[in-house]
Computed example of a mutant assay.
Amino acid sequence: MTFCIYLTHPQVQIDPEVPVPDWGLSEIGRQRAEAAVQLPWAASIRHVISSAERKAIETGEIFARAFGLPVTPIEVLHENDRSATGFLPPDEFEQVADQFFAHPGQSVRGWETAQGAQERIVSGISARLADIEETEPVLFTGHGGVGTLLKCHLMNVPISRSHDQSGGGGCWYRFQKSDLLQQTATDLSWERLSTE
């Protein structure tokens, strides 16, 4: 059975003058991404699939380089669309993100709805896994928001920020391909990459 890892990009180089999808990893983000190659499941991975956003691609590339694997960017795996507001200061962003999760069927300040983003990420990952052999483990590198929405789907629980990663990016969880259809995953705790 194919196991999958969903890994969120670690710290990024924030630049209000650059569109958020074009932000790259910061130096500490790169160091933390490198820590993923030491995790127990790392050497088993046969496919690295990323969101098409720069920070997710860079996270995937750092991992893939260690094992001689290619990275396949998939546009549909992007973070929830926040282009209506663009960059928001951290405190304001957190307030809007709280509303995004609390009202999943509503667009908050023009953002993509949580329900829409969840349907997109589940559909995108399901379509990609349909083309992969059952015995080939997959690493997905992406984003915290849609990663949380995917996690809620896998566990068959209502969308809630209570299932979000804590302490920012650079976190991962493991799931089975069958969880996408059966929605019976029970232990999807976020694990953090090393901060050393």
Rank of each mutant, 00 (worst) to 15 (best):
A117L: 04
A102I: 04
S51P: 00
A102W: 02
Q165G: 08
W23E: 12
P40M: 06
P158D: 13
A43D: 12
E61S: 08
D22L: 09
S126N: 10
R65L: 07
Q106C: 10
H163C: 00
Q106Y: 11
N80Q: 13
D81C: 03
I62V: 06
L77Y: 12
Q99S: 03
F67K: 12
I121F: 06
A52C: 12
D164E: 09
E92L: 03
E58T: 04
I14R: 10
E92Y: 05
Q106M: 14
L188V: 15
V76Y: 11
A52F: 07
T195H: 13
V122M: 07
T59G: 04
T184S: 09
H103P: 00
S123N: 14
D15S: 11
F100L: 05
W23K: 08
R54Q: 14
R128G: 03
F63L: 07
R128H: 08
F87M: 13
A130H: 08
E53W: 13
L88R: 15
D179E: 15
R120H: 06
K177Y: 06
L7S: 15
E191S: 15
M1V: 08
A66G: 07
L193Q: 11
V20Y: 13
Y173W: 09
K151N: 02
Q183T: 05
T148F: 01
P90G: 10
H163G: 00
A56N: 14
A102Y: 04
S189G: 09
L69W: 09
T141I: 03
S44F: 13
W190Q: 01
G86N: 04
P90V: 10
G29T: 12
S189W: 07
S126M: 12
G169W: 14
L7I: 15
L150D: 02
S44I: 13
S189C: 14
I45K: 03
V12Y: 02
S160L: 05
D22A: 13
R46V: 15
Q99G: 01
A35V: 05
G68Y: 02
I45V: 11
E191D: 11
P89R: 15
F175Y: 00
V122P: 00
F140A: 00
S83H: 15
K177F: 05
G144W: 06
I74L: 14
P137I: 06
F3E: 14
P104F: 02
H143S: 01
Q118P: 02
S26T: 15
H78F: 08
W172G: 05
D131Q: 10
H143I: 02
M155S: 09
